[in-house]
Design a protein around this nucleic acid. Structure first.
Length: 313
DNA sequence: AAGTATATCAACCGCGTAGTG
DNA sequence: GCACTACGCGGTTGATATACT
């Protein structure tokens, strides 16, 4: 692409570049911001010499790509859970949601929602914003993400898989993890602990019981809504005591199998997070299409006794 | 191996809003 | 209160990578 076009007004007769940024442009922008700081984007665009970009374009490039604390790589289960929860409360308020995911941009979250979540809804022929789909997410997807978080933590505690951010498995296109990204500091795991449900749990989960959050098995065990203000309040997967590093990234996780589902409902027996074959199993923390279809059908027909939707108030 | 379909995500666009004179 | 400018947000597009046939 990299087209240019003429401009008038605030950029005078300057030829404005569009399309992908080059290394030279990035360097110029970084240098300028290092000298003059963020903000005043139009002034930046005018005064930065050979950087023939609009202020808007400079701002976007900086905020979405060049800013030092941008975290790259796939979303962790914790982050996915946070997005699902916050979106259920706030809708498409991407910027607001991004404020609660350190190092993630609104653009990235928006893309995640459109490419992953909406895709699932579309294939199920339900509206992603419908109550039905939200319930399905809350009852099936979120518990699985919680379990992913728990499984990951267990493996880490056993020393089965240790890594740092710069050793993290890398995705096919965006494996970079900004070295300046500091590890998130986590609070207490007890901050999000649904009511205990002793039954309906597989033996495999019991080994996690001392360190992992108990997994909700009914809709009523999830918070009915997210808190109005998340700072310092109960629901915060990112404060769950679990690492955010990419070792837990389900897209790149190369460990298999994980523990059997700890929930009362059954999952497909070939459930793994191995990279080698994601065609019909859990992919990046999502349900496979078949699984989600089955579950949703059960939900719609009211046939799933383990999911008492009537309790969902 | 080549062609095609699909997924991903960086970048652009339009619009609303806040700030300023 | 009005006009103008700058900024930020959310929706959309299009290039590229990857998967599939």
């Amino acid at each position: 692409m990299s087209e240019t076009r003429g401009s008038s007004g605030k950029y005078g007769d300057m030829e404005l570049r569009r399309g992908p940024w080059t290394l030279e442009e990035d360097t110029l922008l970084i240098h300028y911001i290092a000298c003059h700081g963020e903000g005043r984007w139009n002034l930046l665009a005018r005064c930065s010499g050979s950087l023939k970009r609009t202020g808007k374009s400079c701002r976007l490039r900086w905020l979405n790509y060049l800013k030092p604390d941008i975290k790259r790589g796939n979303l962790t289960p914790e982050e996915q859970l946070m997005i699902l929860e916050l979106h259920s409360k706030w809708g498409n308020r991407w910027s607001r949601i991004a404020q609660h995911l350190p190092g993630r941009t609104d653009n990235e979250i928006k893309n995640y929602w459109r490419t992953r979540v909406q895709k699932q809804a579309r294939q199920l022929k339900v509206d992603a914003n419908s109550a039905m789909f939200r319930d399905a997410v809350r009852c099936y997807w979120m518990p699985r993400l919680l379990e992913k978080m728990g499984s990951s933590h267990t493996m880490q505690s056993l020393g089965a898989y240790t890594t740092t951010t710069d050793q993290a498995p890398q995705g096919p296109r965006h494996g970079l993890v900004n070295p300046s990204m500091q590890h998130h500091q986590f609070g207490s795991l007890t901050s999000y602990e649904p009511p205990a449900v002793a039954e309906n749990r597989s033996p495999s989960s019991s080994s996690c019981s001392t360190v992992l959050p108990r997994l909700p098995v009914t809709v009523s065990e999830f918070p009915s809504t997210a808190p109005d203000e998340l700072d310092g309040v109960a629901f915060d997967p990112l404060s769950s005591g679990l690492s955010m590093n990419n070792a837990y990234d389900l897209d790149t996780w190369d460990l298999a199998p994980v523990s059997a589902p700890a929930l009362g409902y059954s999952a497909s027996p070939d459930y793994t997070v191995a990279n080698s074959d994601c065609s019909n199993t859990i992919v990046d923390g999502l349900w496979s299409l078949d699984e989600l279809c089955d579950m949703l059908k059960s939900y719609i027909s009211g046939a799933d006794p383990k999911v008492p939707f009537g309790d969902n108030s």
